[in-house]
Amino acid sequence: PAHPYDRLKTTSTDPVSDIDVTRREAYLSSEEFKEKFGMTKEAFYKLPKWKQNKFKMAVQLF
């Protein structure tokens, strides 16, 4: 299930529990994912792991 970005980011005051914290981005809706990352999930997962992590750090999901 998708969760709002505000509850997934590492600085959230009301974090979602029971998620894989190493894959926070996977819980974003497709729309919100595209808004935050500027690309689709499919394109994101084709990137090298280090680049994925760099993007995730930039949007507080790492």
Score class of each variant (00 low, 15 high):
residue 22 T to A: 06
residue 30 S to I: 14
residue 31 E to P: 06
residue 46 K to P: 00
residue 32 E to G: 03
residue 49 K to M: 13
residue 41 K to D: 05
residue 49 K to S: 07
residue 18 D to N: 13
residue 17 S to W: 13
residue 36 K to L: 15
residue 39 M to Q: 03
residue 10 T to Q: 06
residue 60 Q to T: 04
residue 39 M to P: 00
residue 46 K to Q: 12
residue 53 N to M: 09
residue 41 K to V: 03
residue 19 I to D: 05
residue 62 F to Q: 12
residue 49 K to W: 10
residue 17 S to F: 14
residue 14 D to L: 06
residue 44 F to L: 01
residue 22 T to F: 07
residue 38 G to L: 07
residue 42 E to Y: 13
residue 61 L to N: 06
residue 2 A to I: 15
residue 14 D to Y: 11
residue 1 P to A: 11
residue 38 G to Y: 05
residue 17 S to A: 14
residue 27 Y to N: 03
residue 60 Q to M: 13
residue 2 A to M: 14
residue 50 W to P: 03
residue 44 F to C: 01
residue 48 P to Q: 02
residue 33 F to T: 02
residue 8 L to A: 01
residue 56 K to E: 03
residue 1 P to M: 14
residue 46 K to L: 09
residue 33 F to G: 00
residue 47 L to Q: 06
residue 16 V to E: 05
residue 7 R to F: 10
residue 43 A to H: 10
residue 12 S to V: 01
residue 47 L to W: 03
residue 12 S to I: 04
residue 14 D to G: 04
residue 34 K to N: 14
residue 36 K to C: 14
residue 43 A to Q: 14
residue 15 P to D: 01
residue 42 E to I: 09
residue 24 R to N: 07
residue 17 S to I: 12
residue 21 V to F: 10
residue 56 K to W: 08
residue 5 Y to M: 02
residue 62 F to Y: 15
residue 3 H to F: 15
residue 55 F to C: 12
residue 3 H to Q: 07
residue 20 D to C: 09
residue 31 E to S: 11
residue 49 K to F: 10
residue 33 F to C: 02
residue 6 D to G: 00
residue 54 K to C: 14
residue 17 S to N: 12
residue 27 Y to I: 03
residue 39 M to V: 04
residue 7 R to L: 11
residue 2 A to G: 11
residue 11 T to S: 11
residue 38 G to V: 07
residue 49 K to P: 03
residue 26 A to G: 09
residue 34 K to C: 15
residue 27 Y to M: 01
residue 12 S to M: 06
residue 18 D to K: 05
residue 6 D to L: 00
residue 62 F to R: 09
residue 55 F to V: 07
residue 22 T to N: 11
residue 53 N to A: 10
residue 54 K to N: 12
residue 50 W to Y: 10
residue 18 D to A: 06
residue 35 E to Q: 13
residue 55 F to T: 02
residue 43 A to N: 12
residue 54 K to A: 12
residue 8 L to K: 02
residue 5 Y to Q: 04
residue 60 Q to L: 13
residue 35 E to L: 13
residue 31 E to N: 07
residue 15 P to F: 04
residue 58 A to Q: 14
residue 45 Y to A: 06
residue 29 S to P: 02
residue 11 T to G: 09
residue 19 I to P: 03
residue 44 F to R: 00
residue 57 M to K: 12
residue 54 K to F: 11
residue 25 E to M: 05
residue 40 T to A: 11
residue 2 A to T: 15
residue 22 T to G: 04
residue 18 D to M: 05
residue 56 K to Y: 02
residue 12 S to D: 03
residue 7 R to K: 12
residue 23 R to F: 07
residue 31 E to A: 11
residue 20 D to R: 02
residue 10 T to W: 08
residue 29 S to C: 08
residue 60 Q to V: 05
residue 53 N to K: 11
residue 10 T to D: 15
residue 55 F to G: 00
residue 20 D to T: 03
residue 44 F to I: 00
residue 48 P to I: 00
residue 39 M to L: 07
residue 58 A to Y: 11
residue 6 D to A: 00
residue 40 T to P: 08
residue 40 T to Q: 05
residue 29 S to G: 06
residue 52 Q to M: 02
residue 45 Y to E: 13
residue 56 K to M: 05
residue 13 T to Y: 06
residue 36 K to S: 03
residue 60 Q to N: 13
residue 9 K to L: 09
residue 8 L to Y: 08
residue 33 F to R: 00
